[in-house]
Structure formats: C-alpha cells, structure tokens
Design a protein around this nucleic acid. Structure first.
Lengths: 226, 226
DNA sequence: ATGCATATAGTCTTAATGACTACAAGAATA
DNA sequence: TATTCTTGTAGTCATTAAGACTATATGCAT
C-alpha cells in the first residue's frame, strides 16, 4: 500500500453484510503483513487527501472485492488506544450486499477473505469487533423502518427467505402466515410467475421488490415497518 | 486556542438542541476571529492527541458553555472542499439539553452565543447547515423510539409541554386527548402534586419522567414509541 | 400411496389508533 | 356576579393491525 498522499491519522473500515445459507454474515480478511499476521479484520484502508471520505470507503472496498457498493457511514471510532503505538481514528462504514455477486479476490496483503457468520465471529483486530457490534445495532434499527433488507437477497426470492433474513438480523422468529400477511399488505412485492426449483417440498412463488412503488408510497406518507 | 498537541486534520463540532418557548433551538456562536467574522457557527474545536474523541466533544462544549453533557456522535463529515484551503474532516456530535441550566458565557474568539430556532437558521459557516440537518434527522428518528425528549424539558412539566416538544421536533401536530392517553399508558410519567402556576387558564398537573421505571420496562422487552 | 415439509388461505380475539364529544377548572372580562 | 375564553381531562366509537391459531394445498421422497 502506498503511504504517500494519505491522511495519516485517519483510516476507513467497512462492515460488509451478506446473507448466505439463511445466515447473516460479514466479510472478513486475514492479513499476512507484519505483526497483525493471522488476525481477522475488517477490510479497510486510508483516505487520500483529495478524496471524499464516502468515496474512499467505496474505493477501498472495490479494491478488495471488485464490487462497487453504496456505503452507509456508521461513525468515527477514536479511542486513544484503539490502534497500537500510533493515534489513528477510523471512520467505519457498512453496506448490505448479495454475496453471489461478489467474486472474492485476494490482495497482496491478505491471506484469506471470507464470509463469516456474524453470530460466530473469531477474534478480531483492534476494535473491529466493537465496530461490527455497532454496525449490527444500526442495521437492526434501520432494517425495520427502511426496505434495505432486499439488498441482501437475490433479485427474486420466496417469502420464506425474506422471513429468514429478518429473523437472522433481528435474532427472533416470526409466525409464517402473519409475516406473509404483513409483508404482502404493503404491496411492495411483485409476484412473479417463476417458482422455486430444486426443493424437496411444494415450491414457493418468487417475488421481487418494487422500488418504484416504494418511492411513490413514500411520497404519500407511507412508512415501511417490520 | 492552542494549536500544539492537536490532531490537525480533525475537528469536532457540536449541535446542541434546546427547547425554549415551545420551539426547538440550536446553540450557535458567532466568531470574531479572522475572516470568519460575522458568520454563525456550531461550537467546535480540535481533538488532542491523548484524548478520546467523545471526551474532546464534551470538553469543547464545556469550555464554551460551562456545562458537561453527554454527547451522541452523529458522524464524520469529510467532503474534500468543506473547509477552505485545508483538508479538515470534522466529527459531529449532538446533545439535548435544558437551556435554563446553561449560563451562556462568551469566549475570546466568539462575539455572540445564542439559542436559535432550528427552523429559522441564519447562514452558517462551512457545512454547518448540513450538519444540523443531519442532526435533526437523527434526532427525529431517535426521539420516537427512545425517551430522550425529556432531556429537553425541565424536571417537571405538564403534558402539553411534552406534546409541543414532540410536535416541534417532528414538525407535526397531535390530537391532545390521544397524545395524553398514549403517553400515560406507558406508565413512564410520575404524576406530581404540583400544578402549573401563573397561567391564565386551568392549571395542569405536572409530571416527571421515571427513568428507573423505564429501565425496568426495557428489561421486560418494552419499547418506547411515540 | 403415503408421509412429510412447506406454501398459502383464512378465523378469532384483543389491543391500539384516530377522530371525536363532553365536561371541568379557573383566570380574564364585561 | 355572570360570562367567556382557554386549556385540562375523561370518555366514546369505529376502524385497523397484530398475535395466535386452524385448515387446506402441493409436490418431492420413501
């Protein structure tokens, strides 16, 4: 990594959430450089002098994963001793993505990159565990009042997947018929002709999220709520 | 202000909300130093090398107002051109306070310090207007699901004051009997013997917020909602 | 063909909400 | 003193949403 042209006391770290095998996961990398070797960490990097911080966050993630995603800022983490020896304050971001769209590619300074279950994390570098906790809290708050959960699912999905998604984020369970009723009543899902394939039981209808419709409803004062 | 021992590319700015005359207000200062003269701005300062950022935010506010308050981090604002000539990223904080407890004291570099209606702001320094917008959005989200509004009111208050508070924050109106019913049903307010004094109409009973009770209810899964 | 897992439709009860009406209290006024 | 004005406080009624269920439909696997 080049160290010229960066703002030295500031870094960016990203919590990338994905949903895979009915589990909420986080993208982690394991570094091989210097004494951090062997510790899992959030993908991160440094901000350039002539770069907006939001842009820096997106660039760094793209460098590591090849995918451009919209990042939401979580906040700054700046305890005096969070980083050893030096005083580095990090600005954390998070994003919700579809893991299938990610072709994970290793960079020079990483020995591994993996999706890890958010409820079963390894020991993490510095305060990255705390950052993930904060991100999860923020996600839980937002996911209930904004239709952001769909960013974690494929474009078309059965209702039960959506339910499992909310259950794993909110760490709870819902009654199936009731969840179904509530979601469908919002009229935000377009029922497709397609059905599930390759399942060992009655196949479910697939739906897709209707972003257009959502925007219109919002203008009319509608508010999403799960 | 001393410029030694600070982290140069980082500042802290605070949005202090207060409720006065049934209006939601923000604490602003007008600086007289250098070319910023005459522009209203958020109280702010620089972070020291050996100081947590949350502590820096509280210290800076205390220096300007003499009052120690708990600050909530809003996030980092880091557009390349937000600050003229230099690249300075600011971490914004906000807090809810009782204006009566504040003895506003001028510092050397400020020519005025004032509570200003948040819906009628003057032109502000740099991106401070944007920061206030973000703070207001965050406040609106939080105030509906956490009992933080009470921090803006005196310890004892009539129900209508609470209603006016929510109305001014959320920029809406509520039906009086319905608001009353909703709030009282939560059992978070302790009715006092005292009544309003010096009002030209029937005096209302005063209440105080029961923090203890709230903490207990939270443990039982209760969730505050307005 | 039978079981089994999931999909999907619908019922019933209870609680919350929004829109009101009505009356009470007490200072100001006429 | 009587009246009026403003706000406080209690309660009604209809509508809607939520939670806990029951019941039936499909279709693969044995």
């Amino acid at each position: 990594m080049h160290t010229t042209n960066i703002i030295k006391p500031l870094s960016v770290d990203s919590v990338i959430f994905g949903f895979e095998d009915d589990q909420l996961k986080v993208l982690l990398i394991k570094r091989i450089v210097d004494k951090d070797s062997g510790t899992w960490a959030l993908p991160g990097g440094y901000i350039k002098y002539d770069e907006d911080i939001d842009v820096a966050a997106a660039r760094i993630l793209e460098e590591r994963t090849g995918v451009k995603v919209f990042m939401k800022q979580l906040g700054a983490f700046g305890e005096v001793n969070r980083f050893p020896d030096k005083r580095i304050i990090t600005i954390a971001y998070y994003a919700l993505v579809k893991p299938r769209n990610f072709a994970l590619s290793l960079e020079d300074d990483a020995s591994a990159i993996e999706w890890v279950n958010v409820y079963d994390l390894p020991k993490l570098l510095f305060d990255h565990g705390i950052i993930i906790e904060h991100a999860l809290r923020s996600l839980r708050r937002r996911v209930r009042i904004e239709p952001i959960g769909f960013n974690l699912l494929p474009n078309s999905f059965p209702l039960l997947s959506l339910q499992r998604l909310y259950e794993s984020i909110l760490n709870t369970t819902f009654d199936k018929p009731n969840f179904r009723r509530k979601i469908l009543k919002m009229k935000l899902l377009i029922p497709l002709e397609e059905k599930q394939e390759g399942v060992a039981h009655r196949s479910a209808r697939l739906f897709k999220f209707d972003k257009n419709r959502y925007d219109k409803l919002i203008d009319k004062g509608f508010s999403f709520e799960v």
